[in-house]
């Protein structure tokens, strides 16, 4: 391609910009991003907009079908549950709780995982081996089992189930961070920094971390989708968020008793979980592809 101007420097997009350009070419991933943005806005502003509160019971409108069914009415767009609570409000509030809790626990898991991973990546010999063995032992325990144990010790509740899931997610981050740190430490730019007199900590924060951020973001989106699935599963089993709380999984287990006469009270919260996880997975896949395309170019 001929240069448009001889004298000006050719603009070269930054790595983030390049990734975004690659990401933008994938229309389905872009759709996922819009969907995700919608969910984020919904969980921030939704509860303010809704006319009902999540626990308010309308005793004259019990088990009302959604508005698009013949018996439905428009004041309750998604219908009501067996206690006359507006389902739309509960789903919106549930998105806020489920999504927010998952986001926080993934951030916590990422911080802890990165710290241990960086430490493991920089240490050698017996210390690294002990960390590896411990992590393998934790990874071998299924998430639900870990959650059952944590819940048995601390008691049920949303926060306790968040701890359990965060504990189960940490090993993934540790593995990833450790492998990247170990690989990058053998590269020449790190040697150059080391010749300048930088210590291990400085090398990690100023040279390796910037190279690792994008990979961490991709890993975090994957972890986020797993976290949402797990937190709703625990809510569903009555081990996480407890009954009146509009957490999406707890709502599903509430609706079990009336599943046959009110199938929408199972279908709609579940669909909300499904759409949320799907959009996160779309974005995660798109980011991963974009990153791969950028690195192979």
């Amino acid at each position: 391609m001929p240069k448009s101007s001889f004298y000006e420097e050719e603009p070269f997009p930054s790595p983030v910009r390049q990734t975004w350009n690659e990401f933008r070419r994938n229309h389905i991933a872009l759709l996922g991003l819009w969907c995700l943005a919608f969910f984020v806005l919904l969980s921030i502003f939704g509860p303010i907009l809704s006319p009902y509160s999540a626990l308010e019971q309308n005793t004259d409108a019990i088990l009302l079908p959604p508005a698009w069914e013949p018996n439905g009415s428009t004041p309750f767009l998604f219908g009501t549950d067996s206690l006359g609570r507006d389902l739309l409000t509960r789903v919106v509030n549930g998105c806020r709780i489920t999504f927010g809790a998952s986001l926080i626990l993934v951030l916590v898991a990422m911080l802890i995982g990165c710290a241990i991973g960086a430490f493991a990546g920089m240490s050698r010999g017996i210390r690294a081996s002990v960390i590896n063995h411990l992590l393998d032992a934790i990874m071998a325990i299924p998430t639900l089992l870990l959650a059952i144990i944590v819940v048995a010790i601390l008691g049920t509740g949303l926060v306790n189930s968040m701890w359990a899931i965060a504990l189960a997610l940490v090993p993934q981050f540790v593995h990833q961070t450790r492998d990247v740190t170990r690989r990058e430490f053998q590269k020449e730019y790190v040697t150059a920094v080391r010749l300048d007199g930088a210590g291990n900590t400085r090398i990690f924060f100023f040279s390796i971390l910037p190279n690792m951020i994008e990979m961490l973001v991709v890993q975090a989106t994957m972890a986020l989708s797993i976290a949402i699935l797990d937190i709703t599963a625990l809510g569903f089993l009555n081990l996480g968020a407890q009954s009146p709380s509009p957490e999406l999984g707890a709502m599903l287990s509430d609706a079990l008793e009336t599943a046959y006469i009110a199938p929408w009270s199972i279908a709609l919260p579940g669909a909300a979980i499904f759409l949320m996880v799907l959009s996160i997975n779309l974005v995660g896949d798109g980011l991963r592809t974009a990153l791969r395309n950028r690195l192979t170019q």
Binding site: G249, A259, A267, G270, F274
Partner: peptide, 12 residues
């Protein structure tokens, strides 16, 4: 299939 919550699928 990867995004469907298992318990919801089972209920459906």
């Amino acid at each position: 299939g990867y995004s469907v919550p298992v318990f919801w699928l089972a209920l459906l």
